[in-house]
Design a binder for these strands. Sequence first.
DNA 1: TCATCTGGTGTCAGCGCTTTCAGTTGTGAT
DNA 2: ATCACAACTGAAAGCGCTGACACCAGATGA
Lengths: 344, 344
Amino acid sequence: MSPEGRPVRLQDVAEHAGVSLATASRMLSDADYKGRASLRNRVFSSAAELGYLPNLHARALASSTSTSVGLVVHDVRDSYFAMIAGGVIKVAEAHKLLVTMVCTYRNPQQELNYVSLLSAQRPRAIILAGSSFSDRAHSAALMEQLSAYQASGGAIVSVTRGRKIGHIVDVGNVEATRQLAHRLVDLGHTSFGVISGPAKLMAVRDRMRGFRLGLQDRGIELPSDSIVRVDISRDGGARGARLLLDRPHRPTCIFGIADVVAVGAMAWIRSAGLRIPADISVAGFGGTPLASDAVPGLTTVELPLERIGQVAMELALLPREEPPHTVAVGGTVLLRDSTAPPQP
Amino acid sequence: MSPEGRPVRLQDVAEHAGVSLATASRMLSDADYKGRASLRNRVFSSAAELGYLPNLHARALASSTSTSVGLVVHDVRDSYFAMIAGGVIKVAEAHKLLVTMVCTYRNPQQELNYVSLLSAQRPRAIILAGSSFSDRAHSAALMEQLSAYQASGGAIVSVTRGRKIGHIVDVGNVEATRQLAHRLVDLGHTSFGVISGPAKLMAVRDRMRGFRLGLQDRGIELPSDSIVRVDISRDGGARGARLLLDRPHRPTCIFGIADVVAVGAMAWIRSAGLRIPADISVAGFGGTPLASDAVPGLTTVELPLERIGQVAMELALLPREEPPHTVAVGGTVLLRDSTAPPQP
DNA sequence: TCATCTGGTGTCAGCGCTTTCAGTTGTGAT
DNA sequence: ATCACAACTGAAAGCGCTGACACCAGATGA
């Protein structure tokens, strides 16, 4: 490192090694460039000795290729996104790319702000893992930003269906939830309660639709008063369970729109003195560790979350000329002990 | 956005608004600069109309101040770090800073690599939330990197005690674990099993030391054959519990070095047909959502994880001339239902 | 032997922005 | 009206790096 203050520049390394700036640059950052072995050694040992660290900003500016990747999630604290982020970071690190993460906390306006802040960093790709609001105006604004970003050479990957730009990782919310509904009905349930999330979220809508479809497939309607909407969080789940249990007709099975919601609901149900699954069954969605750690184990739609992150990052790495891909990453219904046939 | 390809530069905005580059720059990014109102409007509306997005790389290069912050954790998928990351990101976003996260997966060599990759991005600060290995050579190498980084103007915050550089957020591993031990002994336990983690981690060592001290305070020794070392993960916890239960003398209380370990242990214990806490008590460390979601609720040392992240980020924002601060963020022993007096 | 490559190296013009510095305008006091 | 002073604006010099281009040696083929 430098004796004081000013960081070591490539120039310093070049001088110390007695070569030109350009040669030093090529030696250090062009893998295909060999050069004279003696010089090569001199450059590398000078760099090491001086503690040279390339300035990524300068490099990005000069070569207009950055080493960062933007990741947009709703909330890292939710295991669902933490797992996806883990997958993204794993692949990114293998390629020496840095992942810059922003959390929108499901606020569309924040999302817009952070996406533009991210774009300003000119990342190689932007991965939208939590995104997709149903608001027309918002999607239009987002699309505008994204297409500008794409036009300037960035890759876009969305973990959602139906975005008309970039690559897509489709987790098949609708179909998976439909399957879940089938299995729950097959268990014998006919009266359901659903703890849903903000209607502005596409994922929520899709899961709701899938659940409804699944019930309809078995000839069951979901009355609108058996649905409550809460924040997607543990507390939201608890509140949702309370609302549902307060109603005159108690359902035999509750579906939480996300694992974290279902887990919150389980806690409330238990504290209300009811047994799971004897008195009431509970199911979730996501396949987070929350579901497997829960007691009893939470029946859920298991998504390969970390894998989703990895796939997203791999798509982001595809050459620019590649046409938009859509990768379907299916979920699997995992029946655990939180669900059982209803007591007669 | 630009009609095609090339992004809009400040130059374009300036021309469109009929002012010089310099003026446009000042209008757009110097808050103290007012300028003639008419020009000001022209510049802002031009920027909006053209969809101008500043190039953060160019800005960082020219002004040598970046808008990013580096965050080093062991593993985002672990709620412990996800919560801390959430706190860091929350404060960072409030300051329009972007957080770049790397995961070391507890590999010292990776840590070194990623810290230097991060430094190359010249972030305003580097926050080491998961770090601190006991290896001498490794710490020396890390210190060298960090001090070079600091010399070049970056702030450093470590969530660990005893690093001799930058600000410190001290979670008080030793003292908190000591208290936990007291409480467990006070419950009546005298025979303990500990599921510990890699000895190379300072946090693990500190918690072990605290636990030992706490027992010694009550006149109890911890035989070395009642300690098993595993990976800090759910599976590690399960494996640890298996090892402990296989031993001739079964402890009445098991301490997992981290919540995730304790939760894994609980799962194994339950699957082995033992009841918690009737047959065996379990305690963890961290205060992650894992602990509160567990059934029975996991006794643990509750750390304000999100707050720790926030504090770390706030320290990172302190003016450079500020001397190194040390903020102690205490943990609280939270006795839940996973612990009870041992059965006679 | 000389013309033709080829790979290695140096020179230099930017990448898009900030920031002196100098010049220009407008303001209040004289 | 006149001068000092402030506030504004523009021209230009980089920030640290890459990438075209030019140049040079030595190797190759006729």
